[in-house]
Amino acid sequence: MLSQELVKPVILVVDDNPMNLQVLLESLKQTGFKILVARSGESAIQQAEYGKPDLILLDVMMPGMDGFETCRRMKTREALKDTPVIFMTALTEISDKVKGFQAGGVDYVTKPLHHEEVLARVRTHLTMRRLQQQLQEQHLLLQEKHAQLQALNASKDKFFSIISHDLRSPLSAVITGLRMLTDSKNELSDSEQHEIICDARDTTERLYALLENLLTWSRLQRGLIEFAPRPLDVRPLLEQNVKLFAATAAQKQIAIRQTATEPILIYADRPMIDAVIRNLLSNALKFTAAHGSITLSAAQQDDAIEVAIADTGIGMSAETLARLFRLDVRYDQPGTAGEKGTGLGLNVCKEFIEKNGGSISVESVPGAGTTFRMRFPKHCGDHESMAVIPA
């Protein structure tokens, strides 16, 4: 978009006298203004609505509708109410000048016209109009940002309320279990004591994971996480994460495979992308039942690099998908083996991906599985010549 300084201002000149018009037009055209002409009040209103001038030079004494009435009618039109009008008049009485200001004019020049004065007043009011428009634009931007900030704060307030609940409830359960061990130990069997200890351990591990996610998200919001993008081969990251979760997959009898057969290069921060793949693969294992499968893939497309993690798990409804990445909604679906989620992981994944210039999307069918797709822009350099970060 061209800046306002580079766009020629449009001036509408309204005068029924051809001689006055000719002299004034020659003077104005030398300044580079774009000029529109009208010879009556009715024509001036039509020209103004069509041409949207930045300023109007309006003669007062015209047959039919005079300049004062023309100005009054212009000011009733939404598109023209803020357009500055400078009257050109031979009337010199104070009452006539007041009448012009009451009609909506911003200034006047007296006839016979002194062209240096006309140009000076035109330039002054064009500058004032431009500044007014800039202030209006800034005001609208501030209003929009304020609304966005209010929505974000409301979302974060709801989010922290959810997190507080997620912390308080498990901690209460741990405290209750530990009190049972200390206060009623002699009344509990060994198996009951073991069950309480295992529950406390699992809950504490889940709380620790939640706090880790919360701290990561908080550091990301404050710009405290180091961001060091480099040429990165995705395939070794996929392979390493498959190995990392091999034992969990074997325990749940889930087959995992990685289909990328050649280097797939993106320009990204390795720890961030590794964390995303690890989190999404962990979720896929959690929500896939025994004898299911998970496929990790990476491929070059025409305009991007796509990395996908697809499972044959329980899937999600359209309603769940719509609120999946929202801070103010808690997604608390247990896994197929009763695994508990830690919360916030997908939000961290989304922000990590977007930090690296990518995007994430989800496709899911209840009972049939879910696919998370990450898309990253192709690196502009020659991939064969790039020094790739070893995985």
Rank of each mutant, 00 (worst) to 15 (best):
G335T: 08
R129E: 14
M316P: 04
V37F: 01
K8I: 04
G41Y: 03
A79H: 10
R123P: 12
N241K: 10
L152M: 11
R129N: 10
P170W: 00
K185R: 13
A298Y: 02
V388C: 00
L36T: 03
N279L: 09
R219L: 14
C71Y: 01
L238Y: 02
T31G: 04
V23C: 08
M61A: 13
D332E: 13
H115A: 11
I94G: 00
E144V: 08
T89Y: 06
I163V: 06
S317L: 01
Q300E: 05
I314M: 01
I264V: 06
L188E: 05
A284T: 08
T312R: 04
G100H: 05
F352C: 08
T31I: 02
H125I: 08
Q333M: 12
L220F: 07
L131H: 13
H194R: 11
Q133D: 01
K29Q: 13
C349F: 07
F287T: 10
A289K: 11
E339C: 06
D82G: 11
L285K: 01
L238K: 01
A38F: 02
V365K: 12
Q300A: 02
S27N: 08
S43N: 03
E339M: 06
D96G: 00
D202Y: 11
N356Y: 08
L141W: 13
Q253V: 03
D107V: 00
F159D: 06
T216P: 09
G315Q: 05
I273P: 02
E5V: 13
N356M: 12
V13H: 06
A310R: 12
V14I: 04
L324R: 03
C349K: 05
Q138A: 15
L152C: 00
E319H: 01
P366H: 03
S191V: 10
G105M: 00
T83Q: 07
L142S: 15
L126W: 08
T127E: 15
Y208Q: 02
T295E: 09
E26W: 03
H165I: 09
R323K: 07
N17H: 09
G369N: 05
I11Q: 05
K243E: 09
A255C: 01
A173G: 04
I11L: 10
L265M: 07
K340Q: 14
H383R: 08
A310C: 13
Q30T: 10
T110E: 00
K8Q: 06
V60L: 13
R73K: 09
E78G: 07
I11K: 05
V362D: 09
L215T: 11
K286A: 14
G105R: 02
V60I: 14
E306M: 15
V122I: 12
E205K: 11
K145G: 03
A200D: 12
A260V: 10
F101L: 15
S164Q: 12
A275S: 08
